[in-house]
Structure formats: C-alpha cells, structure tokens
Simulated assay, not measured.
Amino acid sequence: MKNVVPALSTTVVNESAKEWVPRSFGDFLHELQRLERLFNREDNLLVFRGHRKREWLVDSTFVRSIKSKLFGLEEHSKFSRRLSDSMDLHRALLNLFLLKFGTLGHPSKELTDLETARGIDPWFELMKRIQQHPDEMQDGPFLLRGTNMLDWTKSSDIALYFANDNRIGDGAVYICDATATGKTLQIIPVGEIIEKMNEDGNAGKALGIPLMFHPANQILNQRAKNQQAIYFAQMELRVDLETIWREQEKELAGETIVLKLVLPSGTESEAKEYLLGKGITSEFLYPNN
C-alpha cells in the first residue's frame, strides 16, 4: 500500500505503529472499505485478520502458548530484548517446534498417500486441520498447542467477525498487503521447509520473513473455504509478524505492508448487526465437516 493515509480527518493516526483509530463504527467501515477499493486490485492482494483485543500481537498459537506456559507472559507481551536477541531462545523455540512436528506428530498415511495421488501437501493439510479444528486434535503436551501458522482471510467482513466475536472494548482488524511482502507465496512443500528450518536454525541462521501458504491443491475443508482462509507461517518464532513487517517497510520507500485499524469500543452491537446482514454468522464460519 503506497503512501496510505486515512480518508477521514477524525481518524486518529499513531504513525509509529501504523495504527488508525476511527471514532465510530461507520467511520471504521468507511476506512476499511476505502482501503479495499484502493489497494485490492489485480496486481495487489490484501488479506485481513481480526483480533478481539486491540493489544494482541500477530503471533501464532504455538508461540502464544509457549509465552504463556513457559514464560508467564500475557498474549500482548513481547519477549524482552535480551531474550529476543538470544540464540538460546532461538534454538529452544525451534526445537520445541521440531519436537511437535516431526517427533510427536506427523501426517497420517492417508495424507501422505494423497501427496502422490492428488498433489496434496500432507504437512500443510495437517497444520490446516489443527488450525481449523483445534478442539478435535490431539495437540500434544500442554505447552505445544497450535502451529506456527496464522489464519488470515481474503474477506474483510470475515476478519471483522473475528475482531467482534466476544469483544469487550477495542478490537482490531489487520490489513496486510501480501504483494508488498515480496515473493512469499510458497510452492515448496511444508515438510521441506521444516527440514530447512531444522538445518538453518540449528546452525544459528535467521529463519526469515513470514511465508504465505495457499496451495492450489487442497483437501476441501468447509470451514477454511467459508472463511476464505490464507495462512502465514511465523518463521522467526521470537518475533511477531507485525514487528518483522515493520522492519521490512524500512527498506520500502513509502510502502506499508501491514496496517492496524482499530474497532472502537462500544460498537459491538452495530458490528454484529452489520455482519448478520451479510450472513456472516458462527454457523456459516464453523460448519460441521
């Protein structure tokens, strides 16, 4: 998103955080829909993610659970600078991830058979299932919840649903220009990427920027389909996606990769009514499949 600024003079801008704060739900929709009109074009792809708490970081469930269980950190807390610069933490997080995805868990034979028959990526399908059905997955020891993938959506309305669901106070919708992140859409199988993470990470190398996954061949998961899901993998487990993208932006003149649009407190009912009018309900987003 090049040289992006709010449409409304009443929208408060925190320039350092790329955070916009509209004064009402109507203003929020105006800003959101204008961004879509301007930047969701054939040569650009905007994707969206909703948080029901404004202060939450763009961290994966795997990282959030480790922060909570091992370090006693809140979901909106970052690792201290001393920890985030530590190679010991880098290797510890990576090896916990590799313990879960490789030693404790791996794709079923049914999934691996589909790799040859239909070109399905078995590791991606395993992780997608964990993301979409966390309640049914045997998800390992308590500290190893989730995956390093984060669910995003091509629909701003669906992101708004997740930002408003059970919300009390300010929520947020993140808008990411996936085109501005560079060539991050992956055609390399997830299993090969995990092997590369093992090789590079344990050699002390950085694991790089977030990678986007939306394979052409997928097993139909109605939840993922209805949610218009796209997934970003958190490669550097010490640092949330927004922080990494902010660093990338410093190298891109006038380019914004990610913007945080605050959903103001007190607008819960208005947002719910708007979404009902669009047919965006829990029954639609969470069909049994």
Rank of each mutant, 00 (worst) to 15 (best):
K2Q: 13
V5T: 15
T10G: 10
V12H: 12
V12L: 10
N14S: 12
S16H: 15
P22E: 11
L32S: 01
Q33M: 08
R37D: 09
E42C: 14
R54N: 14
W56I: 05
L57Y: 02
V58L: 03
S60V: 03
S65A: 11
S68P: 09
S68Q: 12
L83P: 10
D88L: 15
L98Y: 01
L98D: 00
L99R: 04
K100W: 02
F101R: 00
K109Y: 09
E110N: 05
E115G: 02
G119E: 06
I120P: 04
I130G: 04
E136Y: 04
Q138R: 08
R145C: 10
D165S: 13
G171P: 12
G171C: 10
G171W: 05
A180K: 04
G182T: 02
G182P: 02
P189M: 08
I194Q: 00
E195A: 08
A203V: 06
L207F: 00
I209D: 13
I219W: 04
L220K: 09
Y231H: 05
Q234P: 03
Q234K: 01
M235E: 02
T243Q: 13
R246W: 06
L259R: 05
K260T: 00
S269E: 15
S269H: 15
E270S: 11
E273I: 15
N289G: 13
